[in-house]
Design a protein around this nucleic acid. Sequence first.
DNA 1: TTGGAAATGGAATGTCCACTCCAAAATGTG
DNA 2: CACATTTTGGAGTGGACATTCCATTTCCAA
Lengths: 207, 207
Amino acid sequence: MVNAAPVPRTFTRKGSATRDRIVAAAAALIFKRGVAQTTTESVCDAAGVSTSQLYHYFKDKMALVRAVIDRQTENVLDAQREYLGRLDSIPRLRAWRDHIVGLQLFEGCKGGCPLGTLSSELSERSDEARGDLALGFARWEDGIRSGLQAMHDRGELCANADPHQLALATLAALQGGLVLTQLRRDPEPLRAALDAIIDHIESLVRA
Amino acid sequence: MVNAAPVPRTFTRKGSATRDRIVAAAAALIFKRGVAQTTTESVCDAAGVSTSQLYHYFKDKMALVRAVIDRQTENVLDAQREYLGRLDSIPRLRAWRDHIVGLQLFEGCKGGCPLGTLSSELSERSDEARGDLALGFARWEDGIRSGLQAMHDRGELCANADPHQLALATLAALQGGLVLTQLRRDPEPLRAALDAIIDHIESLVRA
DNA sequence: TTGGAAATGGAATGTCCACTCCAAAATGTG
DNA sequence: CACATTTTGGAGTGGACATTCCATTTCCAA
């Protein structure tokens, strides 16, 4: 009886580096083309590894996809680390909006949100992947909520404004704006969606 | 030289009915599993037709997908026909929100938006499909905008409120809310997103 | 009614692709 | 150094799937 897990618990330094290259290559390809259009072969080519290496580090394609979800969660949160946890004023919210819209302009309005597109593709296909993604979004939401909560705690927001609901609505505006921006190849929907929710939050600021 | 198009310009009554069954079956399967996970064989089985029939009516799978996009556009607009074009007051907007949230509850928060998920899956894969979807969303957006425009024209909204931007933001809130609701299997994100944008519109109503 | 077009049946084809297998090289540890 | 473990190479396999082909039946207009 062999070890049931195809992945040994321990990797050498070299092994970890290889695994990392595979995840990075897969993340890039999946962001560009989606999971279904990304073949294991193309991942191996892009990472410069052989088939057996991919299956040495991952049980199957879905395991690799889940690793990509984790990687993209970190990437997304990292790309906003200057803002998340600190969105506690209208100017900071506006600066964050500009940052996000700027990123889309930089990408040519292509690709959408790495986590959002994965959610659409995987929500009905794998409950495990859906759970992973839900955790990632929960962290994101939390990074938005904490700033609003701080404003609320400081008494800067109406008492009946709910930071949880507002954070959820803000994340939804961002995701929906990205879907439409990707579809139209135009940053306007994203900008309009974020502007509206931030204007709304501003309207809840005590006079 | 034979006719280059595999689809004759004219169908018999029976032919149109068959084509319709194929599109309906494909739309249902694609809504449930996505384009990539829907095989031509499964569509034929579900529609009760043979392979050759599918290829008699459609050049290839992508042509069928584009027909599904058109079908789903009609379905989505139809499901809201009582509301679109008439969203010209806060109570009507709230009724529309309830209707949409109710549909999600009925679906068990599964599947998301038929057009939204197609957009995510196809935006980077086919410019033609992206164009079809953009047209569908434009019609949807228009159905939202016209009501807001009517409010604005009647002087019920602040002069500086822009019905175009608000309609775009509303559609984005809806799409983003659906992504999160589908991911979490929980209607709250959708409800929070729509509530926020409608509250925002309400805050723009003249006192 | 009849001829041509449309509709249908279903087997066949060829490609793509996830995953397996076995052997060899490299690595780290006692 | 020696041995176990990890890492790598790359060919091979079996199945899934989009699409094609050709024969047969049905439909409709003149």
